[in-house]
Protein backbone atom coordinates (compact mmCIF):
# COMPACT_ATOMS: atom_id res chain seq x y z
CA UNK A 1 0.00 0.00 0.00
CA UNK A 2 1.44 3.37 -0.86
CA UNK A 3 2.07 5.98 1.77
CA UNK A 4 -0.49 8.56 0.71
CA UNK A 5 -3.27 5.95 0.70
CA UNK A 6 -2.22 4.83 4.13
CA UNK A 7 -2.21 8.41 5.36
CA UNK A 8 -5.65 8.97 3.90
CA UNK A 9 -6.94 5.80 5.56
CA UNK A 10 -5.47 6.96 8.84
CA UNK A 11 -7.16 10.35 8.47
CA UNK A 12 -10.51 8.75 7.59
CA UNK A 13 -10.27 6.51 10.60
CA UNK A 14 -9.35 9.41 12.85
CA UNK A 15 -12.27 11.45 11.53
CA UNK A 16 -14.56 8.48 12.01
CA UNK A 17 -13.31 8.04 15.57
CA UNK A 18 -13.83 11.71 16.31
CA UNK A 19 -17.37 11.59 14.92
CA UNK A 20 -18.05 8.61 17.16
CA UNK A 21 -16.84 10.45 20.22
CA UNK A 22 -19.02 13.42 19.29
CA UNK A 23 -22.04 11.16 18.80
CA UNK A 24 -21.32 9.49 22.12
CA UNK A 25 -21.11 12.74 24.03
CA UNK A 26 -24.29 13.96 22.37
CA UNK A 27 -26.20 10.75 23.19
CA UNK A 28 -24.88 10.85 26.75
CA UNK A 29 -26.09 14.43 27.14
CA UNK A 30 -29.51 13.67 25.67
CA UNK A 31 -30.15 10.58 27.79
CA UNK A 32 -28.79 11.98 31.05
CA UNK A 33 -30.73 15.19 30.40
CA UNK A 34 -33.91 13.20 30.10
CA UNK A 35 -33.27 11.41 33.41
CA UNK A 36 -32.46 14.67 35.17
CA UNK A 37 -35.70 16.24 33.93
CA UNK A 38 -37.70 13.26 35.10
CA UNK A 39 -35.95 13.36 38.49
CA UNK A 40 -36.76 17.03 38.85
CA UNK A 41 -40.44 16.22 38.60
CA UNK A 42 -40.07 14.93 42.17
CA UNK A 43 -37.91 17.60 43.72
CA UNK A 44 -38.46 16.59 47.32
CA UNK A 45 -37.64 12.96 46.64
CA UNK A 46 -34.54 14.06 44.74
CA UNK A 47 -33.40 16.34 47.56
CA UNK A 48 -33.86 13.51 50.04
CA UNK A 49 -31.89 10.94 48.07
CA UNK A 50 -29.14 13.44 47.28
CA UNK A 51 -28.89 14.28 50.96
CA UNK A 52 -28.94 10.57 51.78
CA UNK A 53 -26.07 10.01 49.38
CA UNK A 54 -24.22 12.87 51.05
CA UNK A 55 -24.87 11.44 54.52
CA UNK A 56 -23.94 7.85 53.62
CA UNK A 57 -20.56 8.93 52.37
CA UNK A 58 -20.09 11.41 55.20
CA UNK A 59 -20.27 8.46 57.60
CA UNK A 60 -16.96 7.27 56.20
CA UNK A 61 -15.41 10.51 57.37
CA UNK A 62 -17.31 10.25 60.65
CA UNK A 63 -15.55 6.93 61.24
CA UNK A 64 -12.20 8.64 60.71
CA UNK A 65 -13.22 11.42 63.13
CA UNK A 66 -14.19 8.75 65.66
CA UNK A 67 -10.79 7.12 65.24
CA UNK A 68 -9.16 10.47 65.88
CA UNK A 69 -11.25 10.90 69.01
CA UNK A 70 -9.03 8.11 70.37
CA UNK A 71 -5.68 8.85 68.70
CA UNK A 72 -3.75 11.88 67.44
CA UNK A 73 -2.03 10.18 64.52
CA UNK A 74 -2.71 7.26 62.28
CA UNK A 75 0.18 5.69 60.41
CA UNK A 76 2.14 8.81 61.34
CA UNK A 77 -0.40 11.17 59.74
CA UNK A 78 -2.52 13.86 61.39
CA UNK A 79 -6.27 14.26 60.93
CA UNK A 80 -5.93 17.19 58.52
CA UNK A 81 -3.42 15.31 56.39
CA UNK A 82 -5.73 12.33 56.18
CA UNK A 83 -8.58 14.75 55.39
CA UNK A 84 -6.59 15.84 52.31
CA UNK A 85 -6.20 12.24 51.15
CA UNK A 86 -9.83 11.52 51.94
CA UNK A 87 -11.18 14.66 50.27
CA UNK A 88 -9.12 14.15 47.13
CA UNK A 89 -10.08 10.53 46.53
CA UNK A 90 -13.76 11.07 47.43
CA UNK A 91 -14.04 14.01 45.04
CA UNK A 92 -12.35 12.10 42.22
CA UNK A 93 -14.45 9.03 42.89
CA UNK A 94 -17.57 11.20 43.15
CA UNK A 95 -16.99 12.64 39.69
CA UNK A 96 -16.42 9.22 38.12
CA UNK A 97 -19.38 7.73 40.00
CA UNK A 98 -21.67 10.56 38.91
CA UNK A 99 -20.65 10.16 35.28
CA UNK A 100 -20.35 6.38 34.95
CA UNK A 101 -21.91 4.87 38.10
CA UNK A 102 -24.69 3.26 36.05
CA UNK A 103 -22.26 1.13 34.12
CA UNK A 104 -22.26 -1.60 36.72
CA UNK A 105 -25.71 -2.58 35.47
CA UNK A 106 -24.19 -3.93 32.27
CA UNK A 107 -24.25 -7.56 33.38
CA UNK A 108 -27.94 -7.23 34.12
CA UNK A 109 -28.53 -5.82 30.64
CA UNK A 110 -26.67 -8.70 29.06
CA UNK A 111 -28.67 -11.17 31.17
CA UNK A 112 -32.10 -9.79 30.37
CA UNK A 113 -31.23 -9.07 26.73
CA UNK A 114 -31.89 -5.31 26.90
CA UNK A 115 -28.38 -4.62 25.65
CA UNK A 116 -29.69 -5.59 22.20
CA UNK A 117 -32.09 -2.68 22.23
CA UNK A 118 -29.14 -0.29 22.71
CA UNK A 119 -27.31 -1.84 19.78
CA UNK A 120 -30.05 -0.87 17.31
CA UNK A 121 -29.89 2.82 18.19
CA UNK A 122 -27.65 5.26 16.31
CA UNK A 123 -25.33 6.02 19.22
CA UNK A 124 -22.31 4.34 20.81
CA UNK A 125 -23.43 1.69 23.29
CA UNK A 126 -21.03 2.83 25.99
CA UNK A 127 -22.61 6.28 26.08
CA UNK A 128 -26.08 4.76 26.31
CA UNK A 129 -25.11 2.39 29.11
CA UNK A 130 -23.30 5.10 31.07
CA UNK A 131 -26.12 7.63 30.80
CA UNK A 132 -28.92 5.19 31.54
CA UNK A 133 -30.62 5.99 34.86
CA UNK A 134 -28.29 8.93 35.27
CA UNK A 135 -28.37 9.55 39.03
CA UNK A 136 -27.91 13.20 39.78
CA UNK A 137 -28.36 12.37 43.47
CA UNK A 138 -24.81 10.96 43.31
CA UNK A 139 -23.76 14.60 43.56
CA UNK A 140 -24.08 14.02 47.29
CA UNK A 141 -20.89 11.97 47.39
CA UNK A 142 -19.02 14.49 45.26
CA UNK A 143 -20.11 17.43 47.40
CA UNK A 144 -19.16 15.63 50.59
CA UNK A 145 -15.70 14.87 49.23
CA UNK A 146 -15.25 18.45 48.07
CA UNK A 147 -16.22 19.73 51.56
CA UNK A 148 -13.58 17.61 53.25
CA UNK A 149 -11.01 18.55 50.61
CA UNK A 150 -11.80 22.24 51.15
CA UNK A 151 -11.55 21.81 54.92
CA UNK A 152 -8.16 20.10 54.59
CA UNK A 153 -6.80 22.82 52.29
CA UNK A 154 -7.87 25.49 54.78
CA UNK A 155 -6.49 23.91 57.95
CA UNK A 156 -3.29 22.43 56.52
CA UNK A 157 -0.15 24.45 56.95
CA UNK A 158 1.44 24.00 53.54
CA UNK A 159 4.20 26.06 51.97
CA UNK A 160 2.21 26.72 48.79
CA UNK A 161 4.09 27.06 45.53
CA UNK A 162 2.48 27.60 42.11
CA UNK A 163 3.19 23.97 41.21
CA UNK A 164 1.57 22.71 44.42
CA UNK A 165 -1.47 24.90 43.83
CA UNK A 166 -1.81 23.53 40.31
CA UNK A 167 -1.31 20.00 41.59
CA UNK A 168 -4.61 19.99 43.56
CA UNK A 169 -7.08 20.35 40.65
CA UNK A 170 -4.84 18.16 38.49
CA UNK A 171 -4.94 15.45 41.15
CA UNK A 172 -8.74 15.55 41.40
CA UNK A 173 -9.28 15.45 37.63
CA UNK A 174 -6.74 12.73 36.88
CA UNK A 175 -8.02 10.74 39.83
CA UNK A 176 -11.50 10.94 38.33
CA UNK A 177 -10.02 9.70 35.05
CA UNK A 178 -8.39 6.73 36.76
CA UNK A 179 -11.61 5.79 38.56
CA UNK A 180 -13.53 6.25 35.30
CA UNK A 181 -11.19 3.71 33.70
CA UNK A 182 -11.93 1.30 36.56
CA UNK A 183 -15.69 1.73 36.04
CA UNK A 184 -15.38 1.05 32.29
CA UNK A 185 -13.07 -1.93 32.79
CA UNK A 186 -15.43 -3.31 35.45
CA UNK A 187 -18.35 -3.08 33.05
CA UNK A 188 -16.27 -4.70 30.29
CA UNK A 189 -15.50 -7.57 32.68
CA UNK A 190 -19.22 -8.16 33.02
CA UNK A 191 -19.38 -9.16 29.36
CA UNK A 192 -17.37 -12.19 30.43
CA UNK A 193 -18.92 -12.72 33.88
CA UNK A 194 -22.46 -11.44 33.95
CA UNK A 195 -23.17 -11.91 37.62
CA UNK A 196 -19.88 -10.47 38.77
CA UNK A 197 -20.98 -6.86 39.16
CA UNK A 198 -19.71 -6.96 42.72
CA UNK A 199 -16.10 -7.59 41.73
CA UNK A 200 -15.75 -4.04 40.54
CA UNK A 201 -16.95 -2.74 43.90
CA UNK A 202 -13.71 -4.12 45.33
CA UNK A 203 -11.77 -1.75 43.08
CA UNK A 204 -14.11 1.25 43.03
CA UNK A 205 -15.49 1.50 46.57
CA UNK A 206 -12.64 -0.61 47.90
CA UNK A 207 -10.12 1.55 46.05
CA UNK A 208 -11.44 4.81 47.43
CA UNK A 209 -11.54 3.33 50.95
CA UNK A 210 -7.90 2.29 50.57
CA UNK A 211 -6.87 5.74 49.37
CA UNK A 212 -8.58 7.50 52.29
CA UNK A 213 -5.73 6.30 54.49
CA UNK A 214 -2.00 7.00 54.05
CA UNK A 215 0.11 4.29 52.40
CA UNK A 216 2.13 3.89 55.61
CA UNK A 217 -0.85 2.10 57.13
CA UNK A 218 -0.79 -0.77 54.64
CA UNK A 219 1.46 -3.74 54.06
CA UNK A 220 4.16 -3.16 51.43
CA UNK A 221 2.68 -5.76 49.07
CA UNK A 222 -0.71 -4.09 49.11
CA UNK A 223 0.91 -0.72 48.33
CA UNK A 224 2.97 -2.33 45.56
CA UNK A 225 -0.17 -3.81 44.07
CA UNK A 226 -1.91 -0.43 44.22
CA UNK A 227 1.06 1.22 42.50
CA UNK A 228 2.32 -1.18 39.85
CA UNK A 229 -0.61 -3.50 39.12
CA UNK A 230 -3.65 -1.29 39.44
CA UNK A 231 -2.03 2.14 39.83
CA UNK A 232 -4.61 3.67 42.15
CA UNK A 233 -1.72 5.27 44.06
CA UNK A 234 -1.67 7.96 41.37
CA UNK A 235 -5.23 9.05 42.23
CA UNK A 236 -4.16 10.85 45.37
CA UNK A 237 -1.37 9.20 47.35
CA UNK A 238 1.59 10.35 45.28
CA UNK A 239 0.32 13.81 44.24
CA UNK A 240 -1.04 14.54 47.74
CA UNK A 241 2.20 13.47 49.40
CA UNK A 242 3.98 15.82 47.02
CA UNK A 243 1.73 18.67 48.18
CA UNK A 244 2.29 17.68 51.82
CA UNK A 245 6.03 17.34 51.30
CA UNK A 246 5.94 13.81 52.70
CA UNK A 247 8.08 10.89 51.51
CA UNK A 248 6.47 8.77 48.78
CA UNK A 249 5.64 5.14 49.30
CA UNK A 250 8.11 2.56 47.91
CA UNK A 251 10.79 5.29 47.56
CA UNK A 252 9.33 6.43 44.25
CA UNK A 253 11.16 9.37 42.60
CA UNK A 254 9.75 12.91 42.87
CA UNK A 255 8.69 13.20 39.24
CA UNK A 256 6.09 10.45 39.71
CA UNK A 257 3.87 13.13 41.28
CA UNK A 258 3.46 14.49 37.75
CA UNK A 259 2.62 11.12 36.23
CA UNK A 260 -1.16 11.04 36.98
CA UNK A 261 -2.23 12.52 33.60
CA UNK A 262 -0.20 9.86 31.80
CA UNK A 263 -1.44 7.07 34.09
CA UNK A 264 -5.05 8.19 33.62
CA UNK A 265 -4.65 8.37 29.83
CA UNK A 266 -3.08 4.92 29.60
CA UNK A 267 -5.68 3.35 31.91
CA UNK A 268 -8.55 4.96 30.00
CA UNK A 269 -7.13 3.69 26.73
CA UNK A 270 -6.76 0.17 28.16
CA UNK A 271 -10.28 0.29 29.60
CA UNK A 272 -11.61 1.46 26.24
CA UNK A 273 -9.85 -1.45 24.59
CA UNK A 274 -11.30 -3.87 27.14
CA UNK A 275 -14.76 -2.45 26.47
CA UNK A 276 -14.36 -2.86 22.70
CA UNK A 277 -13.15 -6.41 23.13
CA UNK A 278 -16.06 -7.18 25.44
CA UNK A 279 -18.63 -5.67 23.10
CA UNK A 280 -17.09 -7.42 20.11
CA UNK A 281 -17.21 -10.78 21.85
CA UNK A 282 -20.81 -10.12 22.84
CA UNK A 283 -21.65 -9.35 19.22
CA UNK A 284 -20.06 -12.54 18.03
CA UNK A 285 -21.53 -14.82 20.68
CA UNK A 286 -24.89 -13.17 21.43
CA UNK A 287 -26.61 -13.71 24.72
Amino acid sequence: MDDSVQARNGRTRARHGLAQVRDGVRAYRLISGMWIRSLMAYRLSFAMTAFGNFAVTAFDFAAILLMFSQVDRLGGYSLSEIALLYGATCTSFGIADLALGSMDRLGKRVRDGTLDTLLVRPAPVIAQVAADRFGLHRLGRLVQGAFVLGYALVVLDIGWTPVKILMVPLMVLCGAGIFAAVFVAGAAFQFAARDAAEVQNAFTYGGTTLLQFPPTVFAKDLVRGATYILPLAFVNWIPALYVLGRPYPLDLPTWTAFAPPLVAAVLLALAGLAWRTGLRSYRSTGS
Binding site: Q70, G75, E198, G206, L222
Partner: peptide, 18 residues
Protein backbone atom coordinates in the same frame (compact mmCIF):
# COMPACT_ATOMS: atom_id res chain seq x y z
CA UNK B 1 -16.70 -13.14 48.57
CA UNK B 2 -13.88 -11.50 46.62
CA UNK B 3 -15.15 -8.01 47.40
CA UNK B 4 -15.71 -8.78 51.09
CA UNK B 5 -12.17 -10.13 51.28
CA UNK B 6 -10.64 -7.04 49.66
CA UNK B 7 -12.55 -4.77 52.04
CA UNK B 8 -11.52 -6.98 54.96
CA UNK B 9 -7.87 -6.58 54.00
CA UNK B 10 -8.08 -2.79 53.69
CA UNK B 11 -9.96 -2.35 56.97
CA UNK B 12 -7.68 -4.79 58.78
CA UNK B 13 -4.64 -2.62 58.08
CA UNK B 14 -6.37 0.55 59.25
CA UNK B 15 -7.33 -1.26 62.47
CA UNK B 16 -3.75 -2.43 62.93
CA UNK B 17 -2.63 1.21 62.63
CA UNK B 18 -5.30 2.29 65.12
Amino acid sequence: VFTNTVFGLILAYTYIAL
